[in-house]
Simulated assay, not measured.
Amino acid sequence: MSSSSSDDSQERFALGFLFALIILILSTVVGVVVYKRGITPAPVASSIAAPANMPAAVEIVTNVEDGPSVRVEDGIVKFYFASGQADIAAGANDALADVVAGVTAGKKAVISGFHDDTGGAAMNAELAKQRAFAVRDALMALGVTEAQIELNKPEQMQASGSNPEARRVEVMLSAD
């Protein structure tokens, strides 16, 4: 009887050891996955740089779905909007400073709105118009008169779905 009891004890020990080893391996794998996900920063639209082989005028835009943003690229101020919204991003006044200076020097601010092809065409054109008016109002709040602003008719982008590039308003200076 003692050898049977000893064999049962050894089997229990072996099974317990095997079970503990499996738990250790699983927890290590899960821990590594959680650790790697935890230290990888989420992409932020304002901190993403274009790859080195891209032209300087192109900027990668991501995570604009979360809210409005504004960027200045080669003298063009680009306002990006959340889907279905016409709220201007914080920092608009700083981004428009060069435009205001150009208007003061005798140039005209040209505002162009864009929209994608999702939803109704009339609704998209109206939303692009509201976005352009919001940017116009921001310029006027900085002292630019309505006579110094040219509003272009909204243009449809050849993009579908939730495309941040299609939900934008651009402001540039013209010689007029």
Rank of each mutant, 00 (worst) to 15 (best):
Q158P: 12
K78F: 06
F79D: 09
A90M: 00
R71A: 12
A89S: 15
V58T: 14
I60M: 15
I149H: 05
A82V: 05
L151M: 15
T62Q: 15
K78P: 00
L142F: 10
E165I: 10
A125Y: 05
A86M: 07
G161A: 01
A109V: 06
Q130S: 15
T62S: 11
P164M: 06
F133T: 11
D116V: 03
I88E: 03
D66N: 12
F114K: 02
E73G: 00
V103N: 01
E155D: 10
A57R: 09
Q148K: 14
Q148Y: 02
A128P: 07
I60S: 13
F81L: 05
N93K: 09
G143W: 08
V144I: 01
A132N: 03
N124P: 00
R131D: 06
A52K: 13
F81T: 03
A138M: 07
F133N: 13
A147V: 07
G143R: 10
D66P: 06
V171L: 08
I88Q: 03
M157K: 07
A86Y: 07
A109E: 06
K108Q: 14
P154K: 01
M54A: 13
E126I: 00
A89M: 12
A90Q: 13
S174V: 09
I88T: 13
A86P: 00
N53V: 08
G75E: 04
V110S: 09
P68V: 00
F133C: 00
A92W: 07
V103F: 04
F79A: 10
G106A: 07
V100G: 08
A101S: 14
I76C: 05
G102Q: 06
G161C: 04
V70T: 08
L96S: 04
S112D: 02
K78A: 12
V99K: 03
E59L: 13
S160I: 10
H115M: 07
V72Q: 11
V135E: 08
G119F: 08
R167D: 03
P51T: 06
P68A: 14
I76T: 14
K129I: 00
D66M: 08
A175I: 07
M172E: 14
F79P: 09
A95C: 13
S174I: 05
M123A: 15
M157Q: 14
M54C: 09
A175W: 08
I149T: 03
A134R: 00
T62W: 03
K108M: 13
V99T: 12
N63L: 04
A125D: 09
N124W: 02
V144F: 07
A141N: 13
E146R: 14
T104A: 15
D137N: 15
